[in-house]
Design a binder for these strands. Structure first.
Lengths: 161, 161
DNA sequence: GTCGCTGCAAAGTCTTTGCAGAGAG
DNA sequence: CTCTCTGCAAAGACTTTGCAGCGAC
């Protein structure tokens, strides 16, 4: 019946490819390839979670303390990557924006409004229905995004105590 | 930006019922029923959009300037309403939280990237699939938001000329 | 060498909190 | 009367920006 995928490791491109595309993107826009930018891209690639700027910064500080990367650089690079559609941000109020690489297979999000946890899923039926709806309304679909908000199992248990 | 069509006045509860439930909730928790709290609930009820705390505060200041309601009270009341599951906060990717009453029907959006027109739709198949998915993952859905981006019929015709 | 990039700190935003007076019950 | 609520302003949390030196090209 329901074919729900929750596999986060499903990368559609290899890191070398991603890096090469990123370098090309920078060159195209007369921007510079810096070690900070590489480390941010690499850390995003190696993370299977949606990262906040702060969490990303923390991971980088741990792995490459000698770079002493500033949080401002993380914010600036994330903006750049988002504008270039290399990463996508999901914003969730109290905990700020979270970022993920845009190169994973298409998926939608379940967002817990209690704890902020984000779970991914893909449903073929919904994808198909979107096609049907847009065709019916003579709408030429280029992209879509879906978020389901609610309370995850863990938080329901907490509330019920 | 284009206005969101406002054909979703479909409330599942009447205001009197909502207000009465709210009063009961307050009493139950030894909280007080104040004019500010009523006005915030009423404004949320009468709004067809997801409101930011700032937008909500602005609406209230316009309609009831004599109350001189503080933004802090709006934040505090929204927190209270959210904790009580009277309103749900969510984010459409932009900055900050947006709030809406928990009693409205779901709706999805078709967004034309050419002219900015936003069309609403509801698809029973998709609603059903969302139920199935969330049940399977033991997720208690409170809301969902789906945006399909593309080019509407009118803009396609324009482009074809 | 040029000009974009970086870290730092200061400045913005948005949201929460402490307080003393106002007001609901 | 009591004890919560409110507006105000100050404090926090999160993000952006100005600047001077650094570093990619």
């Amino acid at each position: 019946m329901a074919n729900i995928t929750t596999d986060f490791n499903n990368k559609t491109v290899e890191y070398e490819q991603l890096l090469s595309d990123f370098k090309q993107l920078l060159k195209k826009n007369s921007l510079k390839f810096t070690i900070q930018r590489e480390v941010i891209l690499e850390t995003l690639y190696n993370s299977n979670e949606h990262l906040t700027p702060e969490a990303l910064h923390h991971l980088i500080q741990e792995k490459y303390p000698e770079l002493n990367t500033g949080i401002a650089t993380v914010y600036r690079t994330l903006s750049l990557l988002e504008d270039s559609h290399v990463v996508t941000s999901l914003s969730f109020g109290a905990q700020g924006k979270k970022y993920e690489l845009d190169v994973k297979i298409h998926h939608d999000h379940l967002i817990c409004t209690e704890c902020g946890k984000i779970t991914e899923f893909v449903d073929e039926e919904i994808e198909k229905r979107q096609q049907i709806i847009t065709e019916k309304l003579h709408f030429k679909m280029t992209d879509h995004s879906m978020q389901i908000y609610g309370i995850c199992k863990e938080c329901q248990d907490k509330i019920d105590h």
